[in-house]
Computed example of a mutant assay.
Amino acid sequence: MHIVEYAGHDVDAIVELITTIQMVEFGVATSAEKQPDLREIPEYYQYGAGNFWLAFEGDELIGTLALKDVGGGVCSLRKMFVKKAWRGKARGVAAGLMRTLLDQAKAHGVRAIYLGTVDVYKAAHRFYEKSGFVEVAKSEVPDSVPLMDVDVKYYCRRF
């Protein structure tokens, strides 16, 4: 498995991976159209402390993770998705992606990372908590942090 920064990779494959996990696997009421950021990765994510990473096994896209810089030392963790067959501690895909994101955040002096998530991603909630994220009330999430209308749980990791 190797992790790379997005650099003109196949956007259709990224959209397919993410929306299949969201809508087919977990039944989340969303669509590719509700996520235009996936078709504008450099403009939306790759500035300041932000970036967008892809995990590959050979040529197969197996995971994604994004960090969006919203200013003032605050970022938003977004688009953390790993194909089902590649999940779990033994595979290390999610851990590798998270380590990459946290290293980037620290190197850029980020003070806090927020995220919103849906209630059905139970394993993801545990993973975020093991990665140092603490659940917070929606009212604690800065307005600058983009959230999806399906988000119902919110987390923050401070440095």
Results as ranks from 00 to 15, higher is better:
Ser131Cys: 14
Ala124Ser: 12
Gly50Glu: 05
Gly96Ile: 10
Phe56Ala: 02
Asp149Lys: 12
Ile18His: 09
Phe56Ser: 10
Phe52Gln: 07
Val28Met: 09
Thr100Tyr: 02
Thr20Pro: 02
Val24Leu: 13
Gly71Ala: 10
Ser144His: 03
Glu40Lys: 14
Asp37Lys: 06
Ala49Asp: 04
Arg158Pro: 01
Ser76Thr: 12
Met80Lys: 00
Ala85Ile: 04
Asp143Phe: 09
Gly50Thr: 08
Cys75Asp: 13
Met80Ser: 01
Tyr154Leu: 02
Phe52Asn: 04
Leu101Thr: 12
Tyr154Ser: 05
Ala112Lys: 08
Ser76Trp: 04
Lys89Thr: 12
Ile62Arg: 10
Val152Leu: 08
Lys79Thr: 14
Lys89Asp: 11
Leu147Glu: 00
Gln104Gly: 00
Pro142Glu: 10
Ala32Glu: 03
Ile18Lys: 12
Arg78Tyr: 04
Val74Glu: 11
Asp103Ala: 15
Glu135Trp: 05
Leu97Lys: 11
Asp37Thr: 09
Gly50His: 07
Arg99Thr: 14
Thr30Leu: 07
Ser31Trp: 09
Glu140Ala: 13
Asn51Gly: 15
Gly48Cys: 08
Ala137Phe: 03
Gly50Met: 03
Ser31Phe: 10
Asp119Phe: 03
Glu135Gly: 11
Ile41Phe: 06
Met23Glu: 14
Ser131Gly: 06
Val82Leu: 08
Leu61Asn: 14
Gly58Leu: 05
His108Val: 02
Lys84Leu: 15
Thr100Pro: 01
Asp12Gln: 15
Ile62Pro: 13
Thr117Asn: 05
Met23Asp: 00
Ile41Arg: 01
Glu57Cys: 01
Leu67Phe: 06
Met80Gly: 03
Tyr45Thr: 09
Gly48His: 03
Gly132Val: 01
Ser131Leu: 01
Arg87Asn: 05
Lys122Thr: 13
Tyr47Val: 01
Pro42Thr: 04
Gly27Ile: 08
Thr30Ile: 15
His9Glu: 14
Val152Tyr: 01
Asp103His: 08
Glu135His: 08
Arg126Thr: 11
Thr117Leu: 07
His125Ser: 03
Trp53Glu: 00
His108Glu: 15
Lys130Ala: 10
Val4Cys: 07
Ala32Thr: 07
Ile113Ser: 04
Tyr114Gly: 05
Lys34Phe: 07
Cys156Arg: 11
Val93Asn: 09
Thr117Met: 09
Pro146Val: 08
His2Ser: 08
Gln104Cys: 02
Glu25Gln: 12
Ala13Asp: 15
Ala66Asn: 02
Arg111Ser: 08
Leu102Gln: 06
Trp86Arg: 13
Lys138Val: 07
Val136Met: 02
Ala112Leu: 00
Ile14Cys: 12
Ala112Met: 04
His125Pro: 08
Leu65Phe: 08
Arg157His: 04
Val110Thr: 13
Glu5Val: 02
Lys83Tyr: 06
Phe52Leu: 09
Val82Tyr: 13
Lys83Ile: 01
Ser131Arg: 00
